[in-house]
Nucleic acid binder design. Structure first.
Lengths: 191, 191
DNA sequence: GGTAACATGTAAGCGGTTACATGATTAG
DNA sequence: CTAATCATGTAACCGCTTACATGTTACC
């Protein structure tokens, strides 16, 4: 009832925007970029959602914006306020449900892969493995950036990076083990 | 253009339903249950989508249904056809994008956790760890079922189960390592 | 001079969930 | 006799994405 005009708690994407401003993203455009470079593996946001979020955050005094055009190119830049810092910290600390939603067609196909031929199932397994391996590589490529941030006092982005690397590496390992079990010789199982 | 009445390729959830019928789920109700017991960690479906999917699959001849009421309780049960087997196998074998979509508020909060106090950040880390630990336990509890299926010739559900376990165990491990680094003594970092 | 990147928006649509609705059967 | 489970549906709604829209600045 009534998410009309009064309270209406901030949504997750509002906090994402707030957090990115805190980490130094100035314009909506930069926020979108920073999201793509950092949390895109476990959260996405489109620019369409960012601009309304910025307006709302500013209305609430959690960020402060000023127009700073590049020549004739309209541009509004933001900084987090003390109230914003506090709101973000409260949200982070706030206990409550943290939904973990995974949607993975690859795993679904694997689940049903008994219906396919050994060759097709093997190819699918290889594809799933490759996908995770690529992601591991992509994440490892970011490690220097995270380490740089770490020395400057920002430690947790590195943790989420390690989490991403670890779980995709774990998937690669399981795929390898299974492939070894299933094709010890050449498509034969249970020797 | 035109997903009117002619072709309109089957959507993932249609294949999920088809696959579950193949694995022995007979009614829509049973399909929903089996989804909850098996692939819910990487795919969800609500009963609202299942019944239209069943109708569509039957129209295409991929499953065959007959009314089999329990007394006065309406109930329609299904079996997969040879054409259905083939369609499922083709889909599984079909190369193509396999989006891996993860949405995890816990990781988002962790990413921004530098804004919080050491105590709050530690609590958050513990909560994320606990969440994955619980999931590991829940998945391990299913292992006997997967092993039973394995001996009966259904091998791949066990693989996805191992993937899930490994995935969350990896997250637990990273959380533990990070917690050890950050609190060697008592909230001090970089000794 | 052209292409990529910068910068911000509106509007339509879709895939999916939630709420609502109904009723029968089984187990305690 | 009451609650949980079985079994299937309709309708409203909502968050999010896609497509559309526009113009600027910087680089090659």
């Amino acid at each position: 009832m009534s998410k009309s005009s009064v309270a209406a708690a901030l949504a997750p994407q509002d906090y994402v925007v707030l957090g990115m401003v805190r980490l130094g993203a100035r314009s909506g455009y930069e926020i979108k970029q920073m999201v793509e470079l950092s949390i895109r593996f476990f959260w996405t946001i489109s620019h369409v959602q960012i601009y309304p979020a910025l307006r709302q955050l500013e209305e609430r005094g959690l960020i402060e914006g000023r127009d700073e055009p590049r020549g004739k190119l309209a541009r509004r830049v933001f900084e987090i306020t003390a109230a914003g810092d506090h709101a973000l910290a409260s949200w982070v600390a706030e206990a409550g449900p943290m939904p973990f939603e995974l949607r993975d067609l690859g795993m679904v196909k694997l689940f049903f892969a008994d219906v396919a031929s050994d060759a097709d199932a093997g190819a699918l397994l290889g594809a799933v493995r490759a996908r995770s391996a690529e992601r591991v590589a992509a994440l490892q490529a970011i490690e220097p950036v995270a380490e740089a941030a770490d020395t400057e006092g920002t430690h947790f982005p590195g943790l989420t990076l390690q989490l991403g690397i670890a779980f995709h590496q774990a998937m690669v390992d399981v795929c390898d083990r299974f492939a070894a079990e299933v094709t010890p010789a050449k498509g034969q199982r249970t020797p």
